[in-house]
């Protein structure tokens, strides 16, 4: 196998071939700054905002802020589920221990 050297460093803007694997039949959205292939518009907005904020245009910065805020909503929903999971785990184990490990 070919020796794949350093990881791609998105901060530095270098993208290595071996770091990505784009199937022939897919049409990736490509970052205009580092040509990193991305799956969705939102991923692209976020990627540009995170890695190329200073070089990006006002429109891209605006898109980044929107995508970030939208993401925040999704994260809040996830946090509620995660909290529920934690509570269920905790009390589940508490109950099982109370019943079994007297």
């Amino acid at each position: 196998m070919t020796r794949q050297t350093a990881e791609n460093r998105s901060e530095a803007g270098e993208v290595e071939e071996s770091a990505f694997d784009v199937p022939a039949d897919s049409e990736p959205i490509v970052c205009p700054y580092c040509s990193m292939p991305l799956s969705t518009e939102r991923q692209r907005s976020l990627h540009i905002g995170l890695d190329h904020y200073h070089e990006s245009t006002d429109r891209e910065q605006e898109a980044f802020r929107e995508a970030y805020a939208e993401e925040e909503k999704e994260l809040s929903r996830f946090r509620i589920v995660a909290l529920g999971g934690l509570v269920a785990l905790y009390f589940g184990f508490l109950l099982v221990y109370a019943l079994l490990a007297v």
């Binding site: 794949q4 770091a19 991305l38 799956s39």
Partner: peptide, 9 residues
Amino acid sequence: ADTFRSRAA
């Protein structure tokens, strides 16, 4: 994660 990053990477 819906990514194009390769498995190897």
